[in-house]
């Protein structure tokens, strides 16, 4: 007997199901999965956007506003200059058609390399409860751009801010059907507390996460 079958049979023996699991149990859990009911969420009274700002800051992201998508390259250039960072970035193909040259920024749209200091990405949506970005992997949205560079700049339309993780999953189901290879929830720069429990930012991923909220 294969390991698979002997493991499953041992579990079935415990559940007293016999070799063929009872149809009722299968239907019941099948129905639970199909309807995927929500559990209670933390109680609290807050507005989406202010909560997102508050929690993003609490997770050590910085947040800035731009009026429209076209203003993003200028805002990125200003941020990079303010941080004394080079005006070069790996950028999601999805955002490649913004006028980066006009803002004096050189971009490439490949997979992020070790030498890339800045990564510019969008977000599938963002979560107000925890100040979190959700990035889905895809042809135009590679996962490495939000991870490998020391600075991550994320462009998020305010219309894409949802309340909680459940609402993000609902959007994924509605717009994509099923999750892509990578579904990354990102809440601030990477950090470690491994040495004497001191929190240090910039462990393996970005040292800085800067979020541009697009109002339009």
């Amino acid at each position: 007997m294969s390991a698979r079958d002997s493991i499953l049979n041992r579990i079935r023996a415990v559940k007293a199901r016999g070799e063929a699991p009872a149809a009722a149990a299968r239907n019941e859990i099948g129905e639970y999965i199909r309807t995927h009911p929500e559990s209670p969420r933390p109680t609290g009274d807050w507005e989406l956007v202010p909560q997102f700002r508050r929690m993003a800051a609490a997770m050590s992201s910085t947040v800035d506003d731009v009026a429209a998508l076209g203003d993003v390259p200028g805002a990125v250039a200003m941020y990079l200059k303010g941080q004394s960072l080079p005006l070069e970035a790996v950028c999601w193909p999805q955002l490649a058609n913004l006028d980066w040259a006009a803002a004096g920024i050189r971009i490439h749209t490949g997979r992020a390399q070790g030498a890339d200091m800045v990564g510019v990405t969008g977000a599938f949506c963002a979560i107000a409860e925890t100040g979190t970005l959700l990035a889905l992997s895809g042809e135009d949205t590679p996962a490495s751009a939000s991870l490998v560079p020391e600075t991550h700049i994320a462009v998020v339309p305010v219309s894409r801010i949802v309340r909680g993780m459940e609402d993000a999953f609902a959007l994924v189901r509605a717009e994509r059907g099923q999750p892509p290879r990578a579904m990354n929830f990102i809440s601030g720069p990477s950090r470690t507390g491994d040495i004497e429990l001191n929190i240090t930012l910039g462990a393996h991923g970005p040292f800085r996460v800067h979020i541009l909220l697009v109002q339009g």
Binding site: P179, P180, R181, I186, S190, G205
Partner: peptide, 12 residues
């Protein structure tokens, strides 16, 4: 309230 990264991987 959440860890920095919650990373879901589905398929290849």
């Amino acid at each position: 309230p959440i860890s920095n990264y919650v990373s879901f991987t589905t398929g290849v």
